[in-house]
Simulated assay, not measured.
Amino acid sequence: MPMRTECKNFESRSYPNGDTVRKCNIDLAPDAPWRCPENCSGYERRLADAAWTHGTLVVPPTPPEPAGLEDGSAAAVLDAAEEILNAIGDDVKAEVDAERAAAQTKPGMFSRLFRKKR
């Protein structure tokens, strides 16, 4: 079944460079952006725009499915990528926190110019 764009958990976002992200916000579509599971437990029809007519901000068409999607290999690749990102997430956060802490301890140009005189 193609991605259900009318589901309240479906999200599509386009970027200025032309890239578009199509995803399930509750991560129940292992073959996103191409397909939703046939009997998805998270499917809930979006009620706010059920009878609206959309203008130019309509969700772009679904990209063509790659070869080999039927055998589950796309979901396996996406799962492996997610595991890699989850594995390095704590290290990246620690690096960012360390950089922010170091930036706060260095006096800036304005703090030298406008420091309090004793």
Rank of each mutant, 00 (worst) to 15 (best):
A74L: 15
L78N: 01
A67P: 05
N86D: 12
A103Q: 09
T105M: 15
M109I: 05
E82Y: 04
A80K: 04
M109S: 14
E95C: 13
A76V: 08
F110S: 10
A76P: 00
R100A: 13
P61T: 05
A101C: 03
D97S: 11
D91Y: 06
F110G: 09
F110K: 11
M109H: 04
Q104D: 14
G72A: 07
A98I: 01
D91I: 10
P63N: 04
E65K: 11
V77L: 14
K106F: 03
P107S: 09
L69C: 05
E70H: 04
P107I: 10
D91E: 09
D71N: 09
V96W: 01
E99A: 15
V77I: 13
E70N: 08
G89T: 05
E83N: 08
D90N: 11
D71Q: 04
K106R: 15
P63T: 06
G89L: 12
E70W: 09
A81V: 02
K93E: 11
I88W: 05
V92E: 07
L69G: 02
V92M: 12
P61F: 00
A74G: 11
V77P: 03
E99T: 06
T62Q: 05
A80N: 01
V96Q: 04
K106I: 14
E83F: 07
D79T: 01
D97P: 04
D97Y: 04
V92Y: 07
T105N: 15
E95L: 14
N86Y: 01
A87L: 11
D97F: 03
D79E: 04
A67H: 06
D79N: 06
A75K: 01
P107Y: 08
Q104R: 15
M109D: 06
A103Y: 02
E95A: 14
M109V: 08
A101D: 08
D97C: 05
S73Q: 11
K93R: 13
R100M: 08
A81L: 13
Q104W: 07
K93P: 00
A74H: 13
E99H: 12
P66V: 01
E95S: 13
D71S: 03
P66G: 01
D91V: 07
M109Q: 08
A74R: 15
A76I: 06
P63K: 08
G72T: 02
V92T: 09
G72L: 11
V77M: 14
E82S: 14
D90L: 12
A103I: 00
A67C: 12
L78I: 01
G108V: 00
L85H: 10
A80F: 06
I88E: 11
R100K: 14
E83D: 09
E65N: 07
A102H: 02
D79G: 12
E82A: 15
A101W: 02
E82R: 15
K106M: 13
P66L: 03
G108N: 10
E95F: 08
D90T: 13
I88L: 10
T105G: 14
P60Y: 00
P64H: 08
L78K: 02
L69Y: 02
G89K: 15
K93M: 03
A75I: 01
A67M: 13
A94C: 02
G89M: 09
G89S: 15
A75Q: 00
A101G: 04
K93Y: 11
P107M: 12
A74T: 07
A67R: 14
A87K: 15
P61V: 04
A98K: 05
I88H: 03
E65G: 01
K93Q: 12
R100S: 06
D91Q: 13
